Simulated assay, not measured.
Amino acid sequence: MSAKKLTAQQITDYHKDGYVIIKGFFNKDEVDRMYTTALEDDAMAKNAVDLNDQTGKKTRLSLWFTPGNDVFGYMTRSERMVNAVAELLNDDSAVCHFHSKLMQKEPKVGGAWEWHQDYGYWYKNQFMFPDRLISVMIALTPANKENGCLQVIKGSHKIGRVNHGFSGEQVGADMVMVENALKTMPLVYSELEPGDALFFHPNLLHRSEANLSDYPRWSIISCYCSNSNLAYNERATSWQVPIDTVPDEAVLEWEAASLSEADFMTKEQDPALKQS
């Protein structure tokens, strides 16, 4: 399997809109392996963090920093991911991995994510250059309006960083600016099928509703950083380490280690969840 390349139009769309969706970025067999691992590897459940939304519903995530020799490490380090990220970051320095997280929205109880920018969190990590950061969401199950798919405000990354405060246990954007953005730019529901990839800019305003459907919504979000970027309040070191890229076939074909070897985050370690 050869590494996939983004088209010129996809790169243009990312910079214009703040996001781009690539259909079928991972195939069914690859997704099946990742989803099975997410369900069966005890390390995911043992290291999950619950964050309450404004209504008290819980949204659950497991977050780790160093991409290892587990199936999600292979996904994060795969040629198709690293090459696509490099094209969108458009920086001469190497691509590094900041962190990855498994997002787990269970049926009926999975909480909402309030309106925010990822850089609303990462500003507290004191990353200097938001354009040298990017997130990639890979759907492990269908994501649609019924189960709380990601909503984005198209083009809102061009506003720059918006002030953020706390919404429940989450960091939420200034709602006056959010409402202004909604009056100015289109709201888009980012509906995804398993294996689809959503690449998005750290200043893109986005949110998701609670999952009130009968079906789970699980996804992996990997966040990347250019080696030329600097962070002055980040204890983890993965963001400084160029990725050791693996062939695309590793996701499906290589023997994979357990996620128990991963360096998971706890709530206490995250500077974004501390008052400042």
Rank of each mutant, 00 (worst) to 15 (best):
E191P: 09
A231E: 03
I159R: 14
Y215H: 12
L205I: 01
A236E: 12
S226G: 05
E193I: 08
D214R: 07
A197Y: 01
E169Y: 08
P216T: 04
S213V: 11
F199W: 11
D196P: 08
P202R: 07
S219V: 03
D214P: 01
G195N: 05
I221A: 14
A173E: 01
P186H: 09
L198A: 11
R207I: 00
L204M: 10
G165V: 11
W218D: 09
E193M: 15
L212H: 10
F199V: 02
R207W: 00
E193F: 10
M177S: 13
G168H: 10
I221E: 13
N203M: 14
P194S: 09
T237L: 11
A173M: 04
L182P: 00
L198D: 03
C225K: 03
H201E: 07
G172L: 07
L212E: 12
V171S: 07
L182A: 01
W218L: 13
A236I: 07
I221Q: 13
F199P: 06
G160I: 06
S219A: 15
M185F: 10
I221P: 05
D174W: 00
D196Q: 11
R217H: 11
A173K: 01
V188K: 02
T237A: 05
L182T: 00
V162K: 03
V188M: 04
S222G: 13
Y189G: 04
P202W: 02
G160C: 10
S226D: 07
S219K: 06
E234Q: 15
N233Y: 13
L212Q: 08
R161C: 12
F166Q: 15
T237Q: 12
D214Y: 03
S226T: 01
R161I: 15
M185I: 00
A197I: 05
D196M: 09
S219W: 05
A210L: 04
M177C: 09
Y215I: 12
D196S: 13
Q170G: 06
N180G: 13
G160R: 04
M175Q: 15
S190Q: 12
N180H: 12
H164R: 08
F199K: 07
F200H: 11
P202Y: 02
L204F: 06
V162D: 02
K183C: 09
N233C: 06
P216H: 06
G168L: 06
L198P: 03
R217D: 07
D174S: 00
N227I: 12
V188C: 06
